[in-house]
């Protein structure tokens, strides 16, 4: 692990029961980066994220947080440094946005420190940062998918961790809400100086938002680095098995993956008949 990395894994073997997903995997998350992990389905990217968030214990190897084995640290101590937005969470029936976001304060509270003025300020600020302040007293069940995801992000922000892991934060959202959530992540990264690690499916989004890209296949890291250097036609073909061309995103100048057309569809528009 390099010196400027607070979170990473060394020699990780990751498995569910007996099914091994990754063997001898080592990664380092650059400090203050917006790291995005990409790869085809079942390549182990979410598993890696779960291991980094200590919701999955590696069968071999060590996850290091600030140079120490994450499983040797106290649960609550880790929770003040490292936050996670899992793929699926459950909103208890009838809970309001403010109540849900407030539960993110758990690692900072105690039996006799149930609601400090700081808790109050952080929850208000987290809701403002994600644009759900006006929804504070609405039940979460009644919100749209995009609003709900922003509420969960607000809860993770209320945890006040310098590192935040997001497991496919844009899944189930329409394209406008996907961009909205990713713009929010980029803002958190740039303005608040948090280190973000996200698992994303969309290569275009990954290339556009990531400052550091990790491409995985079959439980191995195939390539990593600046997306402008990492995302090449050869790499996309190797990782996803998808023949493609890379063009420049006219908005951001980042690489844009354009899949090759099927044979027979290469000519101009088909005349309507």
């Amino acid at each position: 692990m390099t010196e400027d990395s607070r979170l990473g894994g060394v020699g990780l073997t990751l498995a569910y029961e007996r099914r091994v997903v990754a063997r001898d995997l080592s990664v380092a998350v650059p400090d203050r980066s917006f790291t995005v992990v990409i790869g085809p389905n079942a390549c182990g990217k979410s598993t890696l994220l779960r291991a980094l968030a200590r919701t999955l214990r590696p069968t071999a190897g060590t996850v290091l947080l600030d140079g120490r084995d994450i499983h040797s640290l106290r649960s609550r101590e880790v929770a003040r440094t490292l936050g996670l937005l899992p793929q699926s969470s459950v909103a208890p029936e009838g809970i309001t946005v403010a109540d849900l976001v407030a539960r993110g304060r758990y690692p900072h509270q105690g039996l006799l420190r149930q609601w400090s003025t700081q808790d109050e300020q952080v929850v208000t600020a987290s809701m403002a940062a994600t644009g759900v302040g006006e929804l504070a007293h609405r039940p979460v069940d009644e919100l749209s998918g995009g609003q709900r995801q922003r509420v969960w992000i607000a809860m993770a922000l209320a945890q006040q961790t310098s590192l935040l892991l997001l497991d496919e934060p844009t899944t189930y959202l329409d394209v406008a809400h996907q961009i909205e959530v990713l713009d929010l992540c980029a803002r958190l990264h740039e303005e608040q100086g948090r280190t973000l690690v996200a698992v994303l499916h969309d290569l275009h989004h990954a290339a556009r938002y990531a400052t550091h890209l990790i491409a995985m296949r079959d439980g191995r890291v195939v390539a990593q680095g600046d997306p402008r250097e990492v995302v090449t036609a050869a790499l996309v073909e190797e990782v996803f098995g998808l023949p493609c061309r890379i063009v420049e995103d006219p908005e951001t100048g980042t690489p844009l993956v354009v899949p090759r057309a099927r044979r027979g569809r290469q000519s101009g528009p088909v005349a309507a008949g």
Binding site: P86, V90, A91, R103, L111
Partner: peptide, 23 residues
């Protein structure tokens, strides 16, 4: 009663609860 606060976090899902520091 002592674990009630942890219980209200476990309601949010195992992964979320772990991330929030509940064993």
């Amino acid at each position: 009663v002592g674990t009630a606060r942890a219980l209200s976090v476990i309601e949010l899902g195992d992964d979320t609860a772990t991330a929030l520091g509940v064993p």
